[in-house]
């Protein structure tokens, strides 16, 4: 018989583990990936694979040769970073840029802070923002969705619905005149629009979100607070003047909002820990998203909004403590 083990209580542990959580997230992203592969074809598949492989590669290199520590590339976190990074760049992006984005995501945003669990900002979003500022032309050429295309060059690109509305309004046109230029809402929901690889189909992302809720990988607070506040803030502006400000439903189904609210903002590492903190964080994200989308220079504001709120997370954690048992006693 082997030696008896002595340890502090408890003596049973949950089946769940970091890699199970991470691969659960990967699994939930499959519907969104399939939709994007359908609309953007081979190009989307290539971008996705490149991002995943290069993220794993850079994490391996850094852990093995720079940090000289244990190599944990198969815990799933690098796969998620790669997948999410691929999902928020255009499918037509040159692959070498995807590799640079992966390097920034893993090297700069994750490993410089000490690896999984220590980073302040969401790695995939940092990679995307880096690419957006470094290669604005390529990052703003969104291919038009052509089902099952295998074309890799000369992809026809066009503006995203958000860009159509934003530029139109800036040039003095009315929202009601602009809306016919964008696909109908049903198509937007399904993902039939120009946009980044994985963020086009709000429905597929919602499906993944429900799966994650079911698996208890995420909680409802952040997505609900984020999407709810977007609806409220956009709704207020829409009520003020529907000819300048587009309706809240349009905000919900376009751009990276759905992906951001369900996958980026809920990233465990960079989001608050307590319930009220999560809600405040979600509302902050929603508010900033609308501000940037409507008043900012970029048509899309989800990435910036979440990164800005990431910076506030330590403060939120400090300010919004969970309700303690027996703190305020109201006994009937």
């Amino acid at each position: 018989m082997s030696l008896l083990t002595v340890s502090g209580s408890p003596h049973v542990y949950t089946e769940d583990s970091v890699s199970k959580i991470m691969y659960g997230v990967v699994l939930s992203l499959i519907p969104a990936a399939l939709v994007s592969f359908y609309f953007f074809g081979l190009a989307a598949i290539l971008v996705t694979l490149t991002a995943i492989v290069s993220c794993l590669f850079f994490e391996f290199i850094i852990q093995k040769y720079l940090l000289k520590g244990p190599v944990t590339i198969f815990d799933g976190s690098a796969v998620i970073t790669g997948l999410l990074l691929a999902f928020i760049v255009p499918a037509s992006l040159p692959l070498w840029m995807v590799v640079i984005g992966s390097l920034v995501s893993i090297g700069m945003a994750k490993m410089t802070f000490g690896g999984l669990g220590k980073n302040i900002f969401n790695p995939a979003l940092v990679g995307r923002v880096f690419l957006m500022i470094s290669f604005p032309v390529e990052m703003n050429m969104y291919p038009k969705p052509i089902p099952m295309s295998t074309q890799l060059t000369d992809i026809i690109s066009g503006p995203t619905p958000l860009a159509i509305v934003k530029e139109g309004v800036a040039q003095g046109e009315n929202v009601s005149d602009l809306l016919p230029q964008v696909p109908e809402y049903v198509n937007l929901l399904m993902g039939n629009m120009g946009g980044s690889v994985g963020e086009i189909s709000a429905l597929a992302i919602l499906l993944g979100g429900i799966y994650m809720l079911f698996r208890k990988i995420i909680t409802w607070e952040i997505p609900v607070a984020y999407l709810g506040s977007v609806v409220i803030f956009a709704g207020i502006l829409w009520q003020v003047n529907p000819e300048i400000y587009v309706d809240p439903l349009f905000h919900l189904v376009t751009g990276g909002l759905m992906l951001g609210a369900i996958y980026m903002a809920t990233d465990m590492v960079t989001s608050p820990m307590g319930r009220w903190g999560m809600i405040v964080y979600g509302i902050g994200c929603g508010f900033l998203t609308i501000i940037i989308r409507i008043f900012g220079a970029y048509p899309e504001g989800v990435a910036f909004a979440i990164l800005i709120m990431n910076a506030f997370v330590p403060l939120i954690n400090r300010g919004f403590k969970p309700k303690r048992f027996g703190e305020e006693v109201k006994n009937g």
Partner: peptide, 8 residues
């Protein structure tokens, strides 16, 4: 033991 992933 792994790093805390701050899942809360």
């Amino acid at each position: 033991m792994l790093s805390c992933i701050r899942c809360g």
